[in-house]
């Protein structure tokens, strides 16, 4: 199969690579760039585990081909913490025991980062709607909602309770 060259900035680092046209963005990130934090849960765009930010927007990396992100900017979960310092969202999620097995976690984190960066101050009901595109099988969501709400409070000073 023919290959195309893709130039993409991931977590601030520019990359250029030759990829097959059919290569998914998840495989490109995970296997070619070795950023395995982005997880693949369903490969059909429902579970949200593969959520990354494409030019600031939360998208499903499993539904995109690597060639579609040519010239664009991607952020993955690996780009959030600064050295030892967790992102405030990650701190809040840890404080609230938000997750159990951790597999869905990167998707929830990136969905919530997008929300935080919009300056959103959702109510709990709105927050549950915002997070309803990501599936978790362990927690029953309560602790995730609490963790993101805590982050909204800390970062945006809202009243997401």
């Amino acid at each position: 199969m023919s290959e195309r060259t893709v130039q993409v900035t991931v977590n601030g680092v520019p990359h250029a690579a030759a990829v097959e046209a059919r290569r998914t963005l998840t495989d490109f990130l995970r296997d070619d760039l070795r950023l395995t934090g982005t997880h693949v849960g369903c490969e059909h765009g429902v579970c949200g585990a593969c959520t990354v930010l494409l030019d600031g927007e939360a998208v499903r990396a499993c539904l995109l081909l690597a060639v579609q992100v040519d010239g664009r900017e991607i952020r993955t979960i690996e780009g959030l913490a600064t050295g030892e310092q967790l992102h405030p969202l990650q701190e809040a999620l840890r404080d609230c025991h938000s997750f159990q097995c951790g597999f869905c976690t990167p998707g929830f984190v990136m969905t919530a980062v997008a929300l935080l960066e919009e300056g959103a101050t959702p109510t709990e009901e709105e927050l549950r709607e915002e997070l309803s595109g990501n599936l978790c099988r362990c927690t029953g969501y309560q602790s995730i909602v609490a963790g993101v709400a805590e982050a909204v409070q800390r970062v945006n000073g809202g009243t997401a309770r």
Binding site: L35, T36, G37, T38, H39, T76, I77, E78, L80, A81, L86, Q90, L93, R94, S98, F99, G102, F103, T105, P106, V109
Partner: peptide, 12 residues
């Protein structure tokens, strides 16, 4: 566990 799991550094 969270130090690795919330940062994308879990190893599955």
């Amino acid at each position: 566990e969270d130090a690795r799991l919330v940062t994308g550094h879990g190893r599955y």
